[in-house]
Design a binder for these strands. Structure first.
Lengths: 127, 127
DNA sequence: CTGAATCCTACCTGATACTG
DNA sequence: CAGTATCAGGTAGGATTCAG
């Protein structure tokens, strides 16, 4: 079968693997929600993010932010004050990813109804 | 701060939560790779998918396909033959999701270099 | 306030064996 | 071929405590 026009898969399986790995790292729940929060609110400090992202534990907040910083998605700025203040914001790369994810977001928002219906139908069939 | 124009977040926090949940369910590694495989190859049978998606166990293949079927992303067709043949293919909803993810895919493919560089820089700073 | 360190649980996942 | 059932190991993630 011919490759659909809107896919953009590399011919190189090694690149494919790298891309898969990259997406896997970037497409986890907390990363997604943090990108969302940062995209919406702009530069934001640690505790504020903890409040923005409902249900996130301090551990996962720290861990995910570190990971995102390492991937180049967020910039971390420490202000030498007392008490300490640390701000996080999306980098250019982070913003671009947020835009890329926008399509998925829109899709989910638009299709909640269809998904719920599909689930109900499935559960009905298998009850 | 004003809401960026390209975000499409609902005003309703309840919808937001639903969308987050939906994305979380749909954005896992194997689901992503299966969408990719199915989008590329069209209708495909169980064992073929197992070969397409490198590293997936039979258990996760079954589990992920069931989940996707429940969410309405894939259709499952059983052919009453001997030996049994079962084919999976993306539904309309599934195809739309694949297209939505296309942006993320493109982003990842385009920015592997920047990510690797960011990671190297981070590791350098923290060594 | 911003984290790091520890402990502990639950689930994710792979391997293996078995069925229609 | 297309699964299901079971078991064991690793890991993600939460709660708690402590520190700069």
């Amino acid at each position: 079968m011919a490759k659909p026009a809107h896919t953009s898969y590399s011919e190189d399986p090694k690149i494919d693997a790298l891309v898969d790995e990259t997406i896997a790292r970037v497409a986890d729940k907390w990363t997604l929600l943090l990108i969302e929060a940062l995209e919406e609110a702009g530069p934001r400090r640690f505790s504020a993010l903890g409040r923005d992202v409902e249900g996130i534990s301090q551990k996962m907040l720290t861990q995910t932010l570190r990971q995102m910083e390492r991937e180049g998605l967020v910039a971390r700025t420490v202000f030498p004050e007392v008490p300490p203040r640390v701000e996080y914001e999306l980098t250019g790369l982070g913003h671009e990813l947020a835009e890329a994810f926008c399509g998925v977001w829109t899709w989910a928002e638009k299709n909640i109804g269809r998904i719920e219906a599909a689930r109900a139908a499935y559960d009905e069939r298998n009850s």
